[in-house]
Every structure is written in C-alpha cells, then in structure tokens.
C-alpha cells in the first residue's frame, strides 16, 4: 500500500508542471487544459476567500497609504507610530509576549505531566479539556474572571477575609497583568494541544538506542530530546503570541476600552471615537497588526519547514 502511494506521489502531475522530459506539444496543451479543469471546482472557495477576506484586508492596507482625499501619503503611519498608538503597540506586544511565555512554560509542564502518566482517564480528560478550553474566550471568559478575582470577586473576597487584599498589593484584573492572567485560560490549553503530539512522538527506541550507545538520561535530553522539542515549542510560542495579540473581546469587555492595546485603539477608531483629521489612521493601525502577524507567521513557517519531518 505504501509502495503504491509512493508511486502515485512520484507520477508526473496531470498538469505536467515543470517536467524536464520533452513532451509533444499537444500533450502539454491537453495537460494544461486538464489542469484548469481540475482547479475549476475550487473556484467558489477561492472567490469567497477573495471577496470576504482579501478585499477587506487589501482595502485596509491600501487605505492606510492614503489621506482623506485619496492621495498617497505616509502620514497615517507616522501617526500610528507616535504617542498613544506607539504605546499601544508596545503594550500589545509586551502583553502578548509575556502571556505567551507564561503559557508556553505552564502548558509544556502540563503536557509533559500528562504524557508521562499511563492513566488513560487523566490523559483523555486533559486532552478533551484542552480542546474545549482552548476555544473559550471572548466576553464570557472576561466575566467569569470578574466573578473570581475582580473587585468583588469570590477569590478576592476570600483572600480579604483571610487578611490579604489583592487590590491593595498592586494587583488589578483590569490591567495588562490581569489580561495576561485571563489569557492563560485559552493559551495554556492551546499549548497543551500543540505540544502533546510532538512529545508523544518521542520514541522509546531513541531512548533505548542512546542508552545502548552509552548515553545517560541527561545526555539523551541534551542531544536528542531537547533539540527535537525545541522547534515545536518555539512554533507554539508564536501561535500563542499571535493569538494573544489579535484578541479583542476579552480585553474590551474587561476594561471597557480603557486599556491602551492596538485592537482596542483600533476598535475605538472604528466605533467613531475619532479625532478630526484621523480618517485613515485606523487603517494604518490595521496594516501594522497584519504586518506583525505576518512576520510571526513567516517565522513559524520557517521553523515548520525545517523541522516538521523530524517528529512524525
């Protein structure tokens, strides 16, 4: 069966793309035509993505380079990287970085702990739980944390009656720190989901082989385990970073738009809290967000390309 698959894989594509073997012209033509026919069925999908994703995204980027009258300008970007907007970019990146970092560490420990147990119930409980909680977010999450460690939250009051006042010790749920904690609720499960497959792909044969070759446990981790897990960990960090960076609902619901984060600022601009002369500033912020996510995505793709074949 595998042999067959391989043969199928290697057989030249019907589109005849880039085969160096000279072919009669007629065959190539026929091949091309068939190639187009093959793509035809996917055109609705491509068109849909084009209209409802590419058009809005491109229009944001294009508008970012125009002033109110449609002339080319960079002034929107100039504005976007100064004052409160620069601060919000920095705050957003800081928040996403710290939140992702914490989730990477905690999620990794949890994934390791789960993988090292042979208890099937614990395993499936954590896997199912992670799948569910990674999808949590938005407004309900914000309010459930308000109920927990908000000004009048249950845990806040419990600690108060135990003699410890969270809020007089500098903690606030309605701050960047608070958000970083709330974000853990979907970032940690996401990390667990991402890391379980690569951790479980570590094969016992590698441990046995390294042991029989004279390696100690720590040498196994130093030369095999960690080099194999590092790329997925790094890739996971980037996924978590972008996830946190783009999050809007939780922050908006928790802080009523008072916190200086890029999505919040952009939301405020859209909702019409715009000062005169800032017509296309929002588009510049949007373009900036896309840029940051694209950079993260490129780093992610590079890591994946280099190492995705290691752990299979």
């Amino acid at each position: 069966m595998t042999l067959n698959d391989e043969l199928l894989d290697r057989s030249p594509s019907p589109a005849g793309d880039g085969t160096s073997v000279p072919e009669p012209a007629g065959r190539i033509l026929r091949g091309r035509r068939r190639g187009w026919k093959n793509v035809a069925g996917t055109l609705p999908f491509i068109a849909y993505l084009g209209v409802f994703l590419a058009v809005p995204a491109v229009s944001v980027i294009a508008t970012a380079f125009q002033d109110g009258k449609g002339n080319l300008t960079l002034s929107n970007f100039n504005e976007a990287i100064h004052g409160v907007y620069l601060k919000s970019f920095i705050a957003s990146i800081q928040l996403s970085f710290v939140a992702a970092l914490v989730a990477v560490v905690v999620g990794l420990l949890a994934a390791l702990a789960v993988s090292s147990t042979s208890n099937k119930i614990v395993r499936s409980l954590v896997t199912a739980g992670s799948g569910v909680f990674a999808n949590t977010g938005g407004v309900p999450l914000a309010f459930s944390f308000v109920a927990t460690v908000g000004n009048f939250g249950i845990v806040t009051k419990l600690l108060q009656s135990a003699g410890f006042d969270l809020y007089s010790h500098g903690f606030s749920l309605y701050s960047v720190t608070g958000l970083a904690i709330v974000y853990q609720y979907f970032l940690i499960p996401l990390m667990i989901l991402i890391m379980l497959p690569p951790i479980q792909a570590l094969r016992k044969e590698w441990v046995d082989a390294s042991e029989s070759l004279g390696a100690s446990r720590s040498q196994f981790w130093r030369w095999i385990g960690i080099p194999l897990l590092a790329p997925p960990i790094f890739a996971a960090f980037i996924v978590l970073f972008t996830d946190a960076f783009a999050a809007y609902a939780t922050a908006q619901a928790l802080t009523s738009g008072t916190i200086p984060l890029v999505p919040i600022q952009l939301g405020a601009l859209i909702s019409g809290n715009v000062l005169a002369g800032q017509t296309n500033l929002g588009d510049a912020l949007g373009a900036g967000m896309i840029l940051i996510v694209v950079i993260a995505g490129l780093i992610y793709a590079t890591i994946q390309r280099r190492t995705s074949k290691w752990l299979r």
Binding site: R203, D208, A209, S212, W223, I224, L228, T307, K309
Partner: peptide
C-alpha cells in the same frame, strides 16, 4: 558496550 539495532525508526531524526 553492546551495539543494538532496532526494528525501525531508531535513528535520531535530528541528526
């Protein structure tokens, strides 16, 4: 100091 060869997939994939 025993050399061992396994059924399959025992090579370290990152090397």
């Amino acid at each position: 100091n025993i050399g061992m060869v396994f059924q399959s997939y025992s090579l370290f994939p990152n090397m």
